[in-house]
C-alpha cells in the first residue's frame, strides 16, 4: 500500500531580507515515508528543525525544494506544488495539526473551537458540540469553562482544548507538536489514550515528543533530525 506521507529531498531555509539578507538553512535532504497507523517521532535537540518540518508538512511554511506527497482520498498531492485552495481542502479533510499554542479568537467559546473542524466538514451543530463535549470531558477540561473564550485559561487548559480540536476529526494524518508539554500525569495519560486510538484506526502521526516516557510509549520509530540539519 502506498505511504500516507512521502517526503523526498525536502529542503527549507529562511532568508531574512531586512536583516542583511541572512539565509538560515534549517532543513536539507529530508527523506521520510510514513504509513497508515505509524507514529514517527522527530528526534533531535532544539534548533534542529523539528517544528519547521511539522509546519512545512501542514503547508504553513512553503516547501523550498523537494517533494511532499500526501495521500488524499484515492489520489495524492504534492504539497510543494499545491495551490492555496488545495491546501485548505487537505487541512479540512486529510491533515490535522496540534500546534503547541492555541490561537485564541475573541468571543469564541472553547466548545466551539473544538467543534469548528467538524462544522467545516458539514457535521450538524448539535452533533459537533456533543463530540466536542465528550473530548473535553475526556481531557478533564471542567464544564464551567466550555462556554468561555479561552483567552484567560491556563497553558495546560489551552493545550487540552487544542488537542481536543485536533482529535475532533478522524484525519488520516495528524501532526503533533509537543502535545503533552504542559500537562500533568492524568492528562498525559488521556492524550496517550487518544493517540493509541487513532493509531489503531490507521491514522499516520508525525510528532515532536520531548517527554521521553510519552515518546517511548507511542512512537513506532524515531526520525533523526540531526542528519537533515547537518546537510543543511
Amino acid at each position: 500500500m502506498a505511504p500516507v506521507l512521502d517526503i523526498r529531498g525536502l529542503a527549507k531555509s529562511f532568508t531574512l531580507h531586512n536583516q542583511g539578507g541572512v539565509t538560515l538553512p534549517v532543513l536539507a535532504a529530508v527523506d521520510l515515508t510514513v504509513g497508515a497507523g505509524e507514529c514517527v517521532a522527530l528526534h533531535g535537540r532544539s534548533g534542529t528543525g523539528k517544528s519547521t518540518l511539522l509546519r512545512t508538512l501542514y503547508g504553513n511554511y512553503r516547501v523550498q525544494s523537494g517533494e511532499l506527497w500526501v495521500r488524499h482520498g484515492a489520489t495524492r498531492i504534492d504539497l510543494a506544488q499545491a495551490r492555496p485552495r488545495q491546501i485548505i481542502e487537505l487541512r479540512r479533510s486529510t491533515i490535522g495539526y496540534v500546534s503547541q499554542f492555541l490561537r485564541v479568537i475573541p468571543r469564541v467559546a472553547a466548545l466551539d473551537i473544538v467543534a469548528e473542524p467538524m462544522r467545516a466538514r458539514g457535521v450538524a451543530v448539535e452533533a459537533a458540540r456533543a463530540r466536542a463535549a465528550a473530548l473535553l470531558t475526556r481531557l478533564n477540561v471542567p464544564e464551567r469553562l466550555w462556554h468561555l473564550a479561552p483567552a484567560t485559561f491556563s497553558g495546560g487548559e489551552q493545550q487540552r482544548i487544542n488537542i481536543a480540536r485536533g482529535f475532533a476529526v478522524a484525519y488520516p494524518i495528524l501532526l503533533l507538536d509537543e502535545p503533552t508539554a504542559s500537562l500533568d500525569g492524568d492528562n498525559r495519560a488521556a492524550v496517550i489514550g487518544l493517540i493509541d486510538e487513532v493509531l489503531a484506526r490507521g491514522t499516520a502521526i508525525v510528532g515532536i515528543f520531548h517527554d521521553g516516557e510519552v515518546r517511548d510509549r507511542v512512537a513506532s520509530r524515531l526520525y533523526d533530525m540531526t542528519e537533515a540539519k547537518a546537510a543543511a
Binding site: 531580507h17 531586512n18 509546519r55 504553513n60 511554511y61 512553503r62 491546501i87 485548505i88
Partner: peptide, 21 residues
Amino acid sequence: SGLTDQVLDDPQHPYTQLLVS
C-alpha cells in the same frame, strides 16, 4: 500572494517580511 497563514508565518518578499515583523 498565497495562503493567509503561509504569507504571514513564512513571508518571502522583503516588504511582507517588514510588514509582519
